[in-house]
């Protein structure tokens, strides 16, 4: 999996997501989920971290999944204290759960596991706009810096005895914190641009990877992938 070209992996991830979201049968979705786990296995994703990531996404859809059985009308499934859950609602919830997790897992395995420059050159190889890629790369780099900056400001506040309460002082301080974060980010952006100019930056990143030809491993991967997709398509709609 490591040797597979960035372009191939990105295409595969997109195809995976399209097919998965179009599928509605639970048995097929379960199979797809399994193949996503398989992909994750091939990509050697760290188990605990990956599960944590999936769970943090599941947190977002938890409410949806928990309420869907009760808000969808249909055949009686179970009920308590006046609420009744429907089988259809349960199925719908399961479908959403499987789709979301399979898409996320396959994306982590196919795309996110690549080193950032590889993602960039993959996108470039697929004809993605240079500016967008730059924004992506810089975002990846600077989200962490932003978080650190935020933490530094927070510790600075805490070091002087700041405790969040529900009063004007607290909200004003949070306002300063947010404002300061924005001002500092803008400032830093200016200085980083200056630093980049000093090293010969003239508006676009040097292409890191030469446009490599697809290797045999890439084709083998692609063929397997297409076969799997075809299989799913026939199963669902055939």
């Amino acid at each position: 999996m490591k040797g597979v070209d960035g372009r191939v992996r990105i295409i595969a991830a997109v195809l995976f997501a399209v097919v998965t979201t179009a599928c509605s049968r639970l048995d097929i979705l379960t199979a797809i989920m399994f193949s996503a786990v398989l992909l994750a296995w091939f990509a050697r994703l760290p188990v605990v971290e990956t599960i944590k990531k999936l769970l943090s996404m599941d947190g977002f859809i938890l409410i949806l999944i928990a309420t869907l059985p009760f808000t969808t009308t249909g055949t009686h499934w179970f009920g308590f204290s006046g609420f009744t859950a429907s089988v259809e609602g349960g199925q719908l919830a399961m479908e959403i759960f499987l789709t979301a997790n399979a898409c996320m897992l396959s994306f982590l395995a196919l795309v996110a596991a690549m080193p950032h420059p590889a993602i960039a050159s993959g996108l470039r190889g697929l004809g993605c706009s240079k500016n967008l890629i730059q924004i992506l790369l810089l975002t990846i780099r600077y989200i962490e810096t932003l978080r650190l900056e935020y933490q530094r400001l927070r510790t600075a506040m805490q070091a002087r005895g700041f405790q969040p309460r529900n009063n004007l002082h607290t909200w004003r301080s949070y306002g300063y914190l947010a404002g300061m974060l924005i001002v500092r980010s803008l400032d830093r952006a200016d200085r980083v641009l200056a630093a980049m100019k000093c090293r010969g930056f003239r508006g676009s990143f040097p292409t890191v990877a030469e446009d490599a030809k697809l290797t045999k491993a890439d084709y083998v991967f692609l063929w397997w992938f297409f076969l799997a997709v075809l299989f799913v398509v026939v199963w669902q709609w055939g």
Binding site: R141, M196, R199
Partner: peptide, 22 residues
């Protein structure tokens, strides 16, 4: 401020940024 100067994820990427631009 060195933090202003280093903007790539890894050390090697940062150091070769200049030569690549050249």
């Amino acid at each position: 401020d060195a933090d202003d100067q280093l903007f790539s994820p890894t050390v090697i990427e940062d150091v070769r940024f200049g030569p690549l631009n050249q």
